[in-house]
C-alpha cells in the first residue's frame, strides 16, 4: 500500500501540540506503517515538499514567515488541519492583538529590562498587525481544537483522515482550551 504523505508544521505556537502528538505513544508505531513524514519540526527537512496528502498545522499566523509558510502548505497539501487552539482560534498569541505592533516592540525591546537589541528589523520576520487564526489566511479542511488537543483527540482526527473520512469529533473532543 502506498504510504500517505504526512506533514506537520509549527507557526506561532508553543510546540505543545507537537508534544501532545508524541503522546500518541504506541500508536505512533501504527502510524509509522501508514504514513511517510515528509515535513515536520521533528524531522529535519528544510523545504516544504510538494504533493503532501495531509498537513497538521500548529500555531497561529503571527508574522510574515508564518504567512508565507501557511500559503506554501496550502498550495502543496491536499488536506490542511488546524492543529490545536492557536491555529484554530489564535489563542494565547492573540493576547498581543489589543496592542499595536510598534507599541508592543517598544514595550518589550526598548522599555523592558535587559539589553536593548538593535537591528531586529532586518533579521526578524515582520510581525503582522494582528495575530490571525490559520483559516483567516488559508482555506482549512478540518479543525482540531484543544490546548493542546490530547492524544485521544489527535488519534480520533488522524485516524479519520487516514481512513479518508471527514473529521467529526465527539462534543467532548472538540472543546476549546
Amino acid at each position: 500500500m502506498k504510504k500517505i504523505k504526512f506533514a506537520t508544521a509549527w507557526l506561532g505556537g508553543c510546540s505543545g501540540c507537537h508534544m501532545s502528538f508524541l503522546d500518541l505513544d504506541e500508536k505512533l508505531i501504527d502510524l509509522a506503517d501508514k504514513i511517510e513524514l515528509v515535513y515536520s519540526p521533528i524531522a529535519d527537512v528544510k523545504e516544504f515538499p510538494a504533493d503532501v496528502d495531509v498537513t497538521l498545522v500548529e500555531g497561529a499566523v503571527a508574522n510574515m514567515d508564518n504567512l508565507e509558510l501557511a500559503q506554501q502548505i496550502r498550495a502543496r497539501s491536499r488536506l490542511v488541519v488546524s492543529f490545536g487552539d492557536c491555529a484554530v482560534t489564535g489563542n494565547v498569541p492573540t493576547l498581543r492583538n489589543k496592542l499595536g505592533v510598534d507599541d508592543l516592540l517598544t514595550a518589550v525591546y526598548h522599555e523592558g529590562p535587559g539589553r536593548h537589541p538593535t537591528g531586529g528589523d532586518t533579521v526578524m520576520p515582520k510581525l503582522l498587525p494582528k495575530v490571525l487564526p490559520l483559516h483567516q489566511v488559508i482555506k482549512v479542511d478540518a479543525f482540531l481544537p484543544g490546548c493542546p488537543p490530547d492524544a485521544d483527540r489527535i488519534w480520533a482526527a488522524v485516524s479519520a483522515l487516514l481512513a479518508g473520512e471527514p473529521v467529526v469529533l465527539e462534543p467532548e473532543m472538540r472543546t476549546f482550551g
Binding site: K98, P133, H135, F176
Partner: peptide, 20 residues
C-alpha cells in the same frame, strides 16, 4: 465553551474584535 463544543462550532469565521 460547552455550548460551542456541543453544537460543533469548532472555529470562528469572523474577525476577533480583541477589545482592550
Amino acid at each position: 465553551q460547552w455550548e460551542a463544543a456541543k453544537i460543533g462550532m469548532d472555529h470562528v469565521r469572523y474577525d476577533y474584535l480583541n477589545p482592550d
